[in-house]
């Protein structure tokens, strides 16, 4: 509670209010509200199908919610024009789960693309900016490689370098540690912390990796079946008594419905027979 009052006193950079989304009658997001403040790292946790990606795509302005509002730096993404949206987008850098690096371009060219396209800076300056960003993510030597020549961890780093190319206020990372070994994942956590400490960026990380979330996040939010069931510091989160949070923290399996449990049981029986 105390953190919430302190937080409310500060300005919210991203303000998500009552956002709901339904696909074909099924509610994927149900009245989600969340404030993210300047300079903090928020980890959005949740299992598969909890609505994490759906929320993320609304926050970065790829799609609009059915109802509710998303304010970024005072602009309502749900009600603004394409031109206003373009301005807001320049304040947000996104690193996608699949890295989404352009396969026909080298790492250098990938990181330079937003700078070249959205500014009129001269080539030497662009090269300087790209080198700084690649240095920051630890890929200073890999600039000439193509995405297919990179390892999984390097791809994520390259995607982050491209996301921060234009010094955005906000960086959104979708499952940065998915598919990486623990050592590489820990290295990425260090990098995410550096984005905040070194560049003063605000970071929203969507993840299902608890240890990573606890290591980097100032606050942790958890989605369950389209609703935000808890928001708090990692300590508060660990101490939460909410049954779904406990289940997630302790890694218990989801209780299947009776029908599918019956199916699973009969399948197992057949499998063993």
């Amino acid at each position: 509670m105390t953190t919430n009052t302190v937080a409310a006193a500060r300005e919210a950079l991203i303000s998500i209010r009552d956002v709901s989304v339904a696909y074909g009658g099924r509610r994927v997001l149900d009245g989600v509200s969340l404030d993210i403040h300047r300079g903090e790292i928020v980890a959005l946790l949740g299992g598969s199908g909890s609505g994490k990606t759906t929320l993320l795509r609304r926050v970065i302005g790829l799609e609009r919610p059915d109802s509710g509002s998303i304010m970024i730096g005072g602009v309502d993404l749900t009600a603004c024009s394409e031109a206003e949206l373009a301005v807001v987008r320049r304040k947000i850098g996104v690193a996608f789960q699949e890295s989404a690096l352009f396969s026909s371009l080298t790492v250098d060219e990938n990181a330079a693309l937003p700078i070249r396209e959205l500014t009129d800076l001269a080539d030497p300056i662009v090269a300087q900016m790209v080198w700084m960003k690649l240095k920051a993510v630890g890929l200073a030597d890999a600039g000439r490689l193509y995405p297919r020549e990179l390892s999984g961890g390097m791809k994520k780093r390259a995607a982050i370098a491209r996301a921060i190319a234009l010094d955005p206020d906000i960086v959104v990372l979708d499952e940065p540690s998915a598919g990486l070994d623990p050592i590489i994942a820990a290295g990425l956590d260090e990098l995410i912390l550096f984005l905040k400490r070194g560049f003063g960026m605000t970071v929203l990380v969507v993840t299902h990796a608890l240890d990573s979330a606890f290591r980097i996040a100032d606050r942790v939010a958890m989605l369950y079946q389209g609703s935000l069931i808890t928001v708090g510091t990692p300590a508060e989160f660990k101490a939460s008594t909410h049954v779904r949070v406990r289940q997630f923290v302790q890694g218990e399996p989801e209780r299947l419905s009776d029908a599918s449990e019956g199916f699973a049981a009969s399948f197992l029986k057949e499998f063993h027979a």
Partner: peptide, 17 residues
């Protein structure tokens, strides 16, 4: 279709391209 699956088109869109 590969660009769709690898989210490259989404990446262009969020860059405002």
């Amino acid at each position: 279709s590969t660009m769709v699956v690898s989210q490259e088109l989404d990446a262009l869109r969020v860059m405002g391209l």
